[in-house]
């Protein structure tokens, strides 16, 4: 799943450097993701994993790194962890 998230980030986060070199705990905002780009990432994650982030999870912290995103996706769709 980490790779899928990484691809979504590569496509939508508009970071200043490619996402494949990014550590899973690197801060995406510090890597150049704007608030607007973060919304694109969230929309792509919802589509890709067929989930809906509830409002309480729509905070900056939940999307600040690949690891944080992965934890959020697993929380909403535990079976995704096995894929």
């Amino acid at each position: 799943m980490t790779d899928e998230i990484r691809q979504i980030i590569e496509r939508h986060a508009r970071l200043s450097a490619p996402a494949d070199g990014l550590a899973v705990d690197a801060d995406l905002y510090e890597a150049g993701m704007t608030s607007h780009a973060s919304v694109s990432v969230m929309l792509a994650l919802e589509d890709h994993f067929d989930i809906e982030f509830p409002d309480r999870m729509l905070t900056r912290g939940v999307f600040e790194s690949i690891a944080a995103i992965e934890a959020a996706v697993i929380q909403l769709r535990p079976e995704a962890a096995l894929q």
Partner: peptide, 12 residues
Amino acid sequence: QTNASLLLITKD
């Protein structure tokens, strides 16, 4: 502009 993009993802 900010709200327009937040509204895409916010549900309630």
